[in-house]
Structures are given as C-alpha cells and as structure tokens.
C-alpha cells in the first residue's frame, strides 16, 4: 500500500536534474509531498503562501519564460483558481502542471468541504489541458515524470490515503499519458475506472468471477485526452461498460465515456460515482461505502449493465 501523492513527490525529485523544473507551493507542500523537492532544491521552490490564484499565474509567467512549473495544493483549492487556469494557463497554452492532492471523498475525515468531487469535471472542459487521476503510487510517479516533456498544461488529482500498489512489476514504457491500462481481460462486462476506484474495481471483478462473470478492468488514469480506441475495443468485446470514480457522476470519467459512447454505439453504460451530493466526515472505507463506490457497488453496477445488453 502507498499513497499516490508520495509518487508525485518522488517524481519531482527525480525530475530535478532538469534545471528548468520548478515547484510552486501554497502552504501545503507537506501534504502534497512537494516538500522533498523544497528541501533539496529550495532555490527552485517558490512559496506562494496561502494564495492559489497567485500561484497558478506565477507558474504561468515562469512557463512563458521557459520554465516547467509544477504547482500543487489540495484538489479542492485548485477549484478557486479555475479562472486563472482557464485564462492565464490554458488559453495562452502554457505548460503549467497543477496537482490537486487529497481529492475525492476518499480523503476522509476533513469532511465535505475538503472532498473535491468536481475537479476532474471542471478541468476537463478546458482546451489544452490534460487531466489525470492515477491509481497507484508507481503510475503517479511515472506519469508525473512524463508531464515534464509535455507541451500541454495539466491537472492531476492525487489521493491522500494509501491504496494498493498495482504496477510494481510493470515496465515503465507501458504507462503513458492518454493510454488506458487493461488490468483484466474478460468478455462479459468492462469496468473502466480511475484513481482509488481501480483497486476497488479489481476486487469487484473477483466477486463477479465467483459468479462466473468475466470482467475487463481498465485503469483509465487519463480522463483527457480519453483513450477512445481502448473504450471502443472493450465496448465491442464486452457489450456493456461500467465507469467507476470517486467523483461526481456528472462530468468526470463517466461523463467523458458517456460523451464518447453517444457518438458511436448504443453500448449500455452504468456510472458509479458520487450521485450529485456532498460528502461528510468519515474514514476512507466508510466514505466509499456511504457513497456506494466500493467493490460490491461496482459489481452491482456490472450486473445491471449486463442486464441491459
């Protein structure tokens, strides 16, 4: 078990050989894990105080001057800098990399004010912005490192709490921005998940297997650009799809997959996500249960999807 935010922090350290890489903080480096970079490279770490709007545009100014800025705060606080991301970063096409940690209801006991369940949706609406929500510490580290050579701006959500490590033995080359990863290859139903619900989806697939249902499980760590080739492939193979995310059912991964499917197929789709409501204080596992995001709920959605074939 490991937290994806640790993968982010490790990646920044590994990127430090590139002197153009700079880190921006808004007083949450201890939490987002940029603190390791700050300790090792204080001259390339810019404290913006508790001021996220300023941070995003300082990053934009630095990107316009040839730097590769990685800015992080809690996912919920990235939202107050949305217009800065839109007008100051995405519109001029500056490669600023924004990381929102502690996303989703999984973040737990801080309660609903801290549980960002809209971040993937809002940043997905911006042209020139890559949106990611990796599932484990290893893929977060690899994908963060890949951002340093991307010409697009990005938003990446990481999670506060530990989740299973899935890619310890996976060759780095197979983990690429914009390419979903097939973790299980069944033909009855395809579960397309991101972030902390990928490991829940694997558990759901095991439950389904006991009933003789063979599920495909995809880790769709990149929500934008969506790997539509892979969606088409698993839709054709399985005939129905379930999306699973610790995010509103409106506008996130489920929304992205629905938009794509509406263009091409009549494949039944069931969306597991936060059902247009806010959370409350609770432990991670309690929140996944309360919000009906845990493995049994994903398995239930899979059965519903299969009945609609």
């Amino acid at each position: 078990m490991a937290a994806t935010r640790d993968g982010y922090g490790q990646a920044l350290l590994e990127l430090a050989d590139n002197e153009k890489v700079v880190v921006l903080e808004a007083d949450l480096g201890k939490s987002t894990k940029s603190l390791h970079f700050r300790k090792a490279y204080p001259e390339r770490t810019i404290s913006c105080g508790i001021g996220e709007q300023n941070m995003l545009l300082v990053a934009a100014g630095m990107a316009s001057s040839g730097y590769i800025p990685f800015a992080s705060t809690f996912a919920i606080f990235t939202e107050r800098a949305f217009e800065q991301m839109r007008n100051g970063v995405a519109r001029p096409g500056l490669a600023v990399h924004l990381c929102g940690s502690h996303g989703g209801t999984h973040t737990g006991t801080d309660g609903s004010s801290a549980q960002s369940i809209e971040d993937l949706a809002i940043f997905r609406t911006l042209p020139n912005v890559t949106v990611m929500h990796p599932s484990d510490e290893v893929s977060t580290r690899i994908l963060t490192k890949r951002l340093a050579t991307s010409t697009n701006a990005s938003y990446m959500r990481t999670a506060r709490n530990k989740t299973p490590v899935l890619y310890d033995d996976t060759p780095e080359d197979s983990i690429q921005i914009g390419k979903g990863l097939e973790l299980k290859n069944g033909s009855d139903v395809a579960i397309v998940a991101c972030g902390v619900l990928v490991s829940e989806s694997l558990k759901a697939a095991e439950m389904l297997a006991q009933e003789g249902i063979q599920a495909t499980v995809v880790d769709m760590h990149t929500i934008k650009p969506l790997d539509t080739d892979l969606i088409n492939k698993v839709a054709e193979r399985c005939g129905c799809i379930v999306t699973a995310e610790d995010h509103s059912i409106i506008g996130g991964l489920g929304g992205a997959v629905a938009e794509h499917l509406s263009l091409t197929t009549t494949t039944p789709l069931e969306r597991v996500g936060v059902k247009d409501r806010f959370g409350e204080s609770g432990q991670s596992d309690e929140m996944l249960e309360l919000m009906e995001l845990s493995a049994p709920h994903i398995a239930k959605a899979a059965r519903r999807a299969m009945q609609r074939k």
Binding site: V22, E43, R44, I46, Q53, N54, M55, L56, L57, V58, A59, A60, G61, M62, A63, S64, S65, G66, Y67, P69, Q84, G88
Partner: peptide, 14 residues
C-alpha cells in the same frame, strides 16, 4: 501582477 511576478522570478533564476 501574478504573471509578472512569475516572469520576474524566472529572470532572477536565469
């Protein structure tokens, strides 16, 4: 002003 601040920091680093 924030953007200009980014440009100013970049100039100093350079």
């Amino acid at each position: 002003l924030s953007y200009g601040m980014g440009c100013a920091i970049a100039a100093k680093l350079d």
